[in-house]
Deep mutational scan, measured.
Amino acid sequence: MISNAKIARINELAAKAKAGVITEEEKAEQQKLRQEYLK
């Protein structure tokens, strides 16, 4: 099960992506976390 901290990070990265200020490194982290969440 995914931790609350990881869910919070997913939401934080989603907000950054929506604002258009996300880095390529953060995009990769976001994809990794989303895949983990979906498992």
Score class of each variant (00 low, 15 high):
Met1Leu: 11
Met1Gly: 13
Met1Asn: 08
Met1Val: 11
Met1Arg: 05
Met1Tyr: 15
Met1Pro: 14
Met1Trp: 11
Met1Ala: 12
Met1Ser: 10
Met1Glu: 08
Ile2Leu: 12
Ile2Ser: 10
Ile2Trp: 12
Ile2Asp: 08
Ile2Tyr: 07
Ile2Met: 14
Ile2Phe: 14
Ile2Lys: 07
Ile2Gln: 06
Ile2Gly: 04
Ile2Thr: 08
Ser3Ala: 12
Ser3Gln: 11
Ser3Thr: 12
Ser3Leu: 13
Ser3Met: 12
Ser3Val: 11
Ser3Arg: 04
Ser3Phe: 06
Ser3Lys: 07
Ser3Trp: 09
Asn4Gln: 14
Asn4Ala: 15
Asn4Thr: 13
Asn4Met: 15
Asn4Trp: 14
Asn4Asp: 12
Asn4Lys: 14
Ala5His: 09
Ala5Asn: 11
Ala5Lys: 07
Ala5Glu: 13
Ala5Ser: 10
Ala5Ile: 08
Ala5Asp: 13
Ala5Tyr: 09
Ala5Gly: 09
Lys6Arg: 06
Lys6Met: 15
Lys6Pro: 05
Lys6Ile: 15
Lys6Ser: 09
Lys6Leu: 15
Lys6Ala: 11
Lys6Thr: 13
Ile7Asp: 02
Ile7Ser: 07
Ile7Gly: 04
Ile7Tyr: 07
Ile7Thr: 04
Ile7Val: 08
Ile7Glu: 05
Ile7Arg: 11
Ala8Glu: 09
Ala8Pro: 03
Ala8Cys: 12
Ala8Leu: 11
Ala8Ser: 07
Ala8Val: 12
Ala8Trp: 08
Ala8Lys: 14
Arg9Asp: 01
Arg9Met: 03
Arg9Pro: 00
Arg9Cys: 00
Arg9Ala: 03
Arg9Tyr: 03
Arg9Val: 02
Arg9Glu: 02
Arg9Trp: 02
Arg9Asn: 01
Arg9Gly: 01
Ile10Asp: 02
Ile10Phe: 12
Ile10Leu: 15
Ile10Thr: 03
Ile10Glu: 03
Ile10Gly: 03
Ile10Lys: 02
Ile10His: 04
Ile10Trp: 15
Ile10Met: 15
Ile10Ala: 07
Asn11Ala: 15
Asn11Pro: 01
Asn11Cys: 15
Asn11Glu: 06
Asn11Ile: 09
Asn11Gly: 04
Asn11Gln: 12
Asn11Asp: 07
Glu12His: 06
Glu12Gln: 11
Glu12Asn: 04
Glu12Ala: 08
Glu12Leu: 08
Glu12Gly: 02
Glu12Tyr: 09
Glu12Cys: 04
Glu12Thr: 04
Glu12Phe: 06
Leu13Phe: 02
Leu13Ala: 00
Leu13Ile: 02
Leu13Met: 03
Leu13Asp: 00
Leu13Trp: 00
Leu13Cys: 02
Leu13Gln: 00
Leu13Ser: 01
Leu13Gly: 00
Ala14Ile: 08
Ala14Val: 10
Ala14Arg: 13
Ala14Met: 10
Ala14Lys: 11
Ala14Tyr: 05
Ala14Pro: 01
Ala15Phe: 07
Ala15Glu: 06
Ala15Trp: 10
Ala15Met: 07
Ala15Arg: 09
Ala15Ser: 06
Ala15Ile: 05
Ala15Lys: 10
Lys16Arg: 06
Lys16Val: 02
Lys16Met: 04
Lys16Gln: 02
Lys16Gly: 01
Lys16Asn: 03
Lys16Thr: 01
Lys16Pro: 01
Lys16Leu: 09
Ala17Thr: 06
Ala17Ser: 14
Ala17Tyr: 07
Ala17Phe: 07
Ala17Leu: 10
Ala17His: 06
Ala17Val: 05
Ala17Lys: 06
Ala17Gln: 10
Ala17Asp: 15
Ala17Met: 12
Ala17Asn: 04
Lys18Gly: 05
Lys18Cys: 00
Lys18Ile: 09
Lys18Trp: 06
Lys18Thr: 06
Lys18Val: 04
Lys18Leu: 10
Lys18Glu: 10
Lys18Ser: 10
Ala19Pro: 00
Ala19Met: 06
Ala19Ile: 06
Ala19Tyr: 07
Ala19Phe: 07
Ala19Leu: 12
Ala19Thr: 08
Ala19Asp: 07
Ala19His: 09
Ala19Glu: 05
Ala19Gly: 05
Gly20Val: 02
Gly20Ala: 03
Gly20His: 03
Gly20Thr: 01
Gly20Gln: 04
Gly20Met: 04
Gly20Glu: 03
Gly20Pro: 00
Gly20Leu: 03
Gly20Cys: 06
Gly20Phe: 03
Gly20Ser: 03
Val21Trp: 09
Val21Asp: 08
Val21His: 08
Val21Ser: 09
Val21Lys: 13
Val21Pro: 03
Val21Ala: 06
Val21Leu: 12
Val21Cys: 09
Val21Thr: 14
Ile22Glu: 01
Ile22Lys: 00
Ile22Ala: 04
Ile22Leu: 05
Ile22Arg: 02
Ile22His: 00
Ile22Thr: 02
Ile22Gly: 01
Ile22Phe: 00
Thr23Ser: 12
Thr23Gln: 01
Thr23Phe: 00
Thr23Pro: 00
Thr23Glu: 02
Thr23Leu: 03
Glu24Lys: 12
Glu24Arg: 07
Glu24Gly: 06
Glu24Asn: 12
Glu24Cys: 07
Glu24Ile: 10
Glu24Pro: 10
Glu24His: 09
Glu25Trp: 05
Glu25Asp: 09
Glu25Pro: 06
Glu25Phe: 06
Glu25Ala: 13
Glu25Gln: 07
Glu25Met: 08
Glu25Cys: 06
Glu26Leu: 01
Glu26His: 01
Glu26Cys: 02
Glu26Asn: 00
Glu26Gln: 02
Glu26Ala: 00
Glu26Gly: 00
Lys27Leu: 09
Lys27Thr: 06
Lys27Trp: 08
Lys27Val: 10
Lys27Met: 11
Ala28Asp: 12
Ala28Ile: 14
Ala28His: 11
Ala28Phe: 07
Ala28Leu: 12
Ala28Trp: 06
Ala28Met: 13
Ala28Gln: 14
Ala28Pro: 00
Ala28Arg: 14
Glu29Met: 03
Glu29Tyr: 02
Glu29Ala: 01
Glu29Trp: 01
Glu29Ile: 02
Glu29His: 01
Glu29Gln: 03
Glu29Pro: 00
Gln30Pro: 01
Gln30Leu: 15
Gln30Tyr: 14
Gln30Arg: 11
Gln30Phe: 14
Gln30Met: 12
Gln30Lys: 03
Gln30Thr: 04
Gln30Ile: 14
Gln31Val: 08
Gln31Arg: 12
Gln31Pro: 00
Gln31Glu: 15
Gln31Trp: 08
Gln31Cys: 14
Gln31Phe: 09
Gln31Leu: 12
Gln31Thr: 11
Gln31Ile: 08
Gln31Lys: 14
Gln31Ser: 09
Lys32Ser: 11
Lys32Glu: 14
Lys32Gly: 05
Lys32Val: 14
Lys32Gln: 10
Lys32Trp: 10
Lys32Pro: 00
Lys32His: 07
Lys32Arg: 12
Leu33His: 04
Leu33Ser: 02
Leu33Pro: 00
Leu33Thr: 01
Leu33Phe: 03
Leu33Asn: 01
Leu33Ala: 03
Leu33Tyr: 05
Leu33Lys: 01
Arg34Pro: 00
Arg34Cys: 15
Arg34Thr: 15
Arg34Trp: 15
Arg34Asn: 12
Arg34Lys: 12
Arg34Gly: 04
Arg34Tyr: 15
Arg34Met: 15
Arg34Ala: 12
Arg34Phe: 14
Arg34Leu: 15
Arg34His: 15
Arg34Ile: 15
Gln35Tyr: 08
Gln35Ile: 07
Gln35Leu: 14
Gln35Glu: 15
Gln35Phe: 10
Gln35Ala: 10
Gln35Thr: 11
Gln35Val: 09
Gln35Met: 10
Gln35Gly: 06
Gln35Arg: 12
Gln35Cys: 14
Glu36Tyr: 08
Glu36Phe: 05
Glu36Cys: 12
Glu36His: 04
Glu36Ile: 05
Glu36Asp: 10
Glu36Pro: 03
Glu36Met: 05
Glu36Trp: 12
Glu36Val: 04
Glu36Arg: 03
Tyr37Lys: 03
Tyr37Ile: 13
Tyr37Val: 10
Tyr37Leu: 04
Tyr37Asp: 05
Tyr37Gly: 07
Tyr37Gln: 05
Leu38Trp: 09
Leu38Pro: 06
Leu38Cys: 15
Leu38Ile: 12
Leu38Arg: 11
Leu38Glu: 15
Leu38Met: 11
Leu38Asn: 13
Leu38Gln: 09
Leu38Thr: 08
Leu38His: 11
Lys39Ile: 14
Lys39Cys: 13
Lys39Met: 15
Lys39Phe: 14
Lys39Trp: 14
Lys39Leu: 15
Lys39Glu: 15
Lys39Tyr: 15
Lys39Ser: 15
Lys39Thr: 15
